[in-house]
Simulated scan of single mutants.
Amino acid sequence: MTEATGPDSDAGPLVRPYFLAGGRSRPARDDLRLITLVVAVTDHASEIMSPEHAEILRLCARSCSVAEVSALTGLPLMVVKVLLSDLIERGYLLHRSPPTSSEIPSQELLQAVLDGIRRL
């Protein structure tokens, strides 16, 4: 990211978040939450990509959460989600979100399974 120098150096980065995200304010995916885990499928890109995409790909060599990627890159969460979406769509990353409340089995079902196992 380009940093300001001179009298306005306290102003922060010159590159705005919407520019880093290609002018997008929302990710293409809606399943990326703070605790979603992402991991790189490969350690190198087969195409030219932005420095931010490359940095995220490098960080995801080991599994980490969306929140960790945002913290480690220093980029806003929404920008990270957009960039992660790009990398997932291109096949560079895999992601795994925890189940939503509608996907979690009911307590009754879990109890029935447990009872069935105990009868074996």
Rank of each mutant, 00 (worst) to 15 (best):
S63Q: 15
L34G: 13
Q111D: 10
Y92K: 05
D43P: 04
Q111G: 00
S85Y: 04
S46E: 11
E68G: 00
E103H: 06
D30Q: 12
L72Q: 09
M78P: 01
I48P: 01
D31Y: 06
S97N: 11
Y92L: 08
A67L: 14
E89V: 05
V82D: 01
P27Q: 07
L84M: 02
R26V: 10
R26H: 12
C64F: 00
E108K: 06
L110I: 06
G91H: 09
S50C: 01
T73R: 08
E103T: 01
D31Q: 05
V82M: 02
T36E: 06
S102C: 05
E108V: 07
E47S: 12
A45T: 07
L94V: 08
L34M: 13
I88N: 04
P105F: 04
S102P: 00
E89A: 13
M78F: 10
L109V: 10
D30P: 00
D30F: 00
S46T: 06
E89Q: 11
L94E: 15
V38M: 05
R26T: 14
T73M: 02
L57Q: 02
A54N: 02
V69Q: 03
V66D: 02
E55F: 05
L87Y: 02
L77S: 15
I56Q: 05
L110F: 05
V82R: 06
L75D: 04
S63E: 15
S50P: 01
A61H: 15
V66I: 14
S106Q: 02
L75W: 07
A61T: 14
L84V: 09
V41N: 15
G74D: 01
A112G: 00
K81P: 03
